[in-house]
């Protein structure tokens, strides 16, 4: 029990008449990489949106490190230490790569609107701290050469990396990655796998939604399979691969 960082209890979400997430109960162990897989439209992204507060659950509980996340706004959840990326990359294309990551340091700095506009020389220290931290994350993801590029013109693979760097700059305890490898070529996918391993080694728990089964089976400690919003199997990659329900869900009856 102690080692669960995130627990979903009987989580339920209806959109109009459609049930997207159906009484889902799931625990995520601290320090592990857990993958959430399932056919298209199974409700995986909805689960992410529920955890990060973008949509409100119809019923059920989300417990993170002992705190209830129900009803919390996305920015509060980010402050509690949950970072995320998006299925359709959402880099800030109106900013440079460096500035993108500096936004990730938003919660690690505190200067408000008044002091930001009135007292800048005094703030240079904080600004420098933000900048150097952001630069560290840029180097960590090997994006140095792009630091001053506008984020919108990067190729997709780099945009995905940037999104992860930005989420890491938040220094989260839990990182939700929504299809980080989609649209990437084979070489980039391997790099993404290595990156996720590295993130894990930094004691950050990772939840992954991904369609690339090779990647999932390679790097996951546990795999949860959902279909029609319901949990149909859970276990180590090996267990899940041999589960007859999973095979049915993926191949049809």
């Amino acid at each position: 029990m102690q080692s669960d960082i995130l627990k979903l209890e009987q989580l339920h979400k209806n959109f109009g008449g459609v049930t997207a997430v159906d009484n889902l109960s799931l625990s995520f162990a601290k320090g592990e990489v857990t993958s959430l897989i399932g056919p298209n439209g199974a409700g995986k992204t909805t689960v992410f949106n529920l955890i990060t507060g973008f949509i409100k659950p119809s019923s059920g509980k989300i417990i993170f490190n002992g705190w209830h996340l129900n009803g919390k706004k996305p920015h509060m959840i980010a402050a509690m230490g949950i970072g995320r990326t998006f299925q359709n990359v959402q880099v800030f294309s109106n900013m440079t790569v460096l500035e993108n990551i500096m936004v990730g340091r938003h919660l690690r700095s505190r200067c408000g609107m008044f002091f930001s506009s009135v007292l800048p020389p005094f703030l240079r220290l904080e600004e420098n701290r933000i900048r150097s931290a952001a630069k560290e994350w840029i180097s960590f993801l090997k994006l140095d050469q792009y630091a001053d590029f506008s984020a919108g013109i990067l190729p997709l693979g780099n945009q995905r990396m940037l999104e992860i760097a930005r989420a890491l700059a938040l220094e989260p305890n839990l990182l939700l990655l929504d299809e980080p490898a989609s649209g990437l070529n084979a070489r980039e996918t391997i790099a993404m796998g290595e990156l996720i391993q590295k993130i894990k080694s930094m004691d950050i728990t990772v939840i992954l939604v991904e369609h690339d089964m090779e990647l999932v089976m390679d790097i996951s400690d546990r795999v949860a399979v959902i279909n029609f919003g319901r949990l149909i199997a859970e276990g180590t990659p090996k267990e899940v691969q041999q589960n007859p329900d999973v095979i049915t869900a993926y191949l049809g009856t």
């Binding site: 996305p74 959402q90 800030f92 936004v103």
Partner: peptide, 10 residues
Amino acid sequence: GSQDAASSLG
């Protein structure tokens, strides 16, 4: 740039 991404960063 993106309201969703901004709020996901706090």
